[in-house]
Lab assay of single mutants.
Amino acid sequence: DIIVVALYDYEAIHHEDLSFQKGDQMVVLEESGEWWKARSLATRKEGYIPSNYVARVDS
């Protein structure tokens, strides 16, 4: 799995977006363009995230 960590807070604009806080970790489910589908490890919610707001966690 690709794990990313939030670099900034993000408040969902559309209902399919995923809100998150700086430091939150998410599993990337699908990478396509600038918006990635991800699942929050904390809340288990899924939605689209702006890929420029996150960084990959080296395992």
Rank of each mutant, 00 (worst) to 15 (best):
F20L: 02
L7V: 06
S32K: 14
L7C: 10
G33I: 03
L18V: 03
Y10L: 04
G33E: 06
P50K: 06
D9H: 07
L18S: 00
S59V: 13
Y8R: 14
L29E: 04
V27N: 04
R39T: 05
I2E: 07
K45P: 00
D9Q: 05
L41K: 06
E11V: 15
M26R: 00
Q21L: 12
W36F: 12
E46C: 11
S59T: 13
V4M: 05
A38F: 01
D17L: 09
E11Q: 12
D17W: 13
E30S: 11
A6P: 00
D1S: 12
A38S: 03
D9I: 03
A12M: 04
W35E: 04
R39N: 02
R56Q: 08
V57G: 05
R56F: 12
P50Q: 06
K37N: 05
F20M: 05
G23F: 05
S32Y: 14
A55Q: 13
L29H: 04
F20V: 03
E34A: 12
V27G: 03
L29R: 04
D9C: 07
H14G: 14
W35T: 07
S40V: 08
N52Q: 10
Y10M: 03
L41V: 11
E34M: 14
E11N: 11
G23D: 06
S59L: 12
F20H: 01
S51Q: 09
Q21D: 06
E34W: 15
R39G: 03
D58G: 13
E31S: 15
V28F: 03
S40D: 09
V28L: 13
R39F: 11
M26Y: 02
K45L: 12
L18M: 09
H15Q: 14
I49Y: 01
G33P: 05
W36N: 03
D58S: 12
Y53C: 10
D9Y: 04
L41Q: 06
K37S: 04
V28E: 00
A55I: 13
G23A: 03
R44S: 14
R44V: 06
H14Y: 10
F20A: 02
A12F: 02
S40P: 02
I2G: 06
D24H: 06
Q21S: 13
Y8D: 06
H15T: 13
A38V: 14
A6H: 01
V57S: 08
E31Y: 13
Y53I: 06
L7W: 03
A12Q: 05
P50R: 06
T43A: 04
F20R: 00
R39C: 09
Y10D: 00
S40A: 09
R56T: 08
R39Y: 11
N52R: 12
I2P: 08
W35V: 07
E46V: 13
D9R: 04
V54M: 05
R44N: 15
Q25C: 14
P50W: 07
L41S: 06
S59H: 11
S51M: 10
I3Q: 05
S40F: 06
D17M: 14
Q25H: 15
V4G: 01
I3W: 08
Y48H: 05
V27T: 07
A42K: 14
Y10G: 01
I13G: 08
V57W: 09
H15G: 11
K22W: 04
I49F: 05
D24V: 04
E16G: 15
I3N: 04
S51I: 08
D24S: 04
W35D: 03
R56L: 11
A42N: 11
R39A: 07
V5W: 06
G47E: 01
D1H: 14
V28Y: 02
L7E: 03
K22D: 02
D24T: 05
K37W: 15
Y8L: 09
H15V: 14
Q25E: 10
S59Y: 11
G23K: 02
E46A: 07
L41H: 04
V57L: 14
V54S: 00
E46L: 07
V28T: 03
M26Q: 00
K45W: 05
Y10W: 10
D24G: 03
A42L: 11
A38T: 04
L7R: 05
W35F: 10
P50T: 03
R56G: 06
A12K: 06
L7T: 03
S51A: 13
L18Q: 01
L18H: 02
G33H: 05
R44F: 15
E34N: 13
S40K: 11
S19W: 04
M26G: 00
Y8A: 09
Q25Y: 15
T43M: 03
A55E: 13
W36T: 08
E31G: 13
E30G: 08
E31R: 13
D1I: 14
A6V: 01
V5H: 05
E46S: 09
D24W: 03
E16F: 14
L7P: 00
K22C: 09
V54A: 03
Y48S: 05
E30K: 09
S32E: 11
V28P: 01
K37E: 03
L29A: 03
Q21N: 11
L7G: 01
S19L: 02
I3M: 08
G33F: 05
K22Q: 08
N52M: 10
R44K: 14
D58K: 11
